[in-house]
């Protein structure tokens, strides 16, 4: 082989003499270089498209940065919490021990931060994601289950439910309100991955439901928390996944 393999540079349109010699001998580069040949056809914008764009040309204000958008979603969570606490009370918060408060709100805080950033990033095409969402979501679920299981385990309370508890409706209500406000905000952005966007909004709504229920609900039993608090999150996530599946 003559010299190192070719490096493709879209800005450069000519080959050096050394590269030409290499290309004449290297089958791998011949294959790759073949893909970079001009492919024919027009490489100019269509007149009708340009005219349409020019007719619709108005100044636009760039969206806020991802951290600012995430902060807006965080504010939405706090607003939903304030509304539901006003309506349903905050007995649960005062029933929790300082240790339980720290652990529960740490998990909720991490979830709120991760999913707020995720929804904000979905609004801006080409945003850089440094944290993979699915492993974080799974880790949060495991952490939540572990904390509830360790702190609120009570074998005597594992009886079949007689009726749907109000916590489910409160959780679903908080999630729906969060999803509705969140959807209004994300309309300013441009989704390029609908599946991830809808699932992220679903996850953020689930965190909102958990936050409201943790502050509201004074029943500190693992069975109750798993069934009704966890149930509302599962229903929200399932609904988001069913809607998002259409766009996969």
């Amino acid at each position: 082989m003559n010299g190192p393999h070719l490096q493709f540079d879209p800005e450069r349109h000519t080959l050096t003499e050394a590269e030409r010699r290499h290309l004449a001998e290297c089958r791998s580069c011949q294959l790759l270089f073949g893909s970079a040949e001009p492919l024919g056809g027009a490489s100019r914008p269509n007149a009708a498209v340009v005219n349409t764009i020019l007719k619709d040309l108005k100044p636009v204000k760039p969206l806020p940065s991802v951290p600012r958008l995430a902060l807006i979603f965080g504010t939405v969570l706090i607003a939903v919490l304030a509304i539901f606490t006003y309506l349903t009370g905050a007995k649960g918060f005062f029933m929790l021990s300082p240790m339980a408060q720290m652990l529960m709100f740490s998990i909720i805080g991490v979830g709120a931060t991760v999913f707020s950033f995720s929804v904000a990033q979905q609004m801006i095409p080409g945003s850089l994601r440094r944290v993979p969402l699915l492993p974080v979501a799974i880790a949060l679920c495991v952490a939540f289950a572990a904390v509830v299981g360790l702190l609120f385990w009570d074998v005597t309370s594992w009886a079949p439910p007689q009726m749907i508890h109000s916590c489910l409706w409160i959780g679903l209500g908080a999630a729906v309100v969060t999803a509705a406000i969140g959807s209004l905000i994300v309309r300013r952005g441009a989704w390029t991955d609908w599946f991830s966007s809808i699932v992220s909004i679903g996850a953020l709504s689930g965190v909102s439901a958990l936050l409201v229920l943790t502050v509201h609900c004074p029943i500190l039993k693992a069975s109750h928390i798993f069934l009704w608090h966890g149930g509302s999150i599962v229903i929200v996530m399932l609904a988001a996944w069913i809607v998002a599946r259409r766009y996969r």
Partner: peptide, 23 residues
């Protein structure tokens, strides 16, 4: 190009343009 026009407010000054376009 038409989609870029509709989404042009989502480009943030200082961010790389081509990944935004390719997304």
């Amino acid at each position: 190009l038409l989609r870029i026009h509709r989404a042009r407010q989502t480009y943030r000054p200082g961010e790389p343009l081509l990944p935004w376009v390719y997304a």
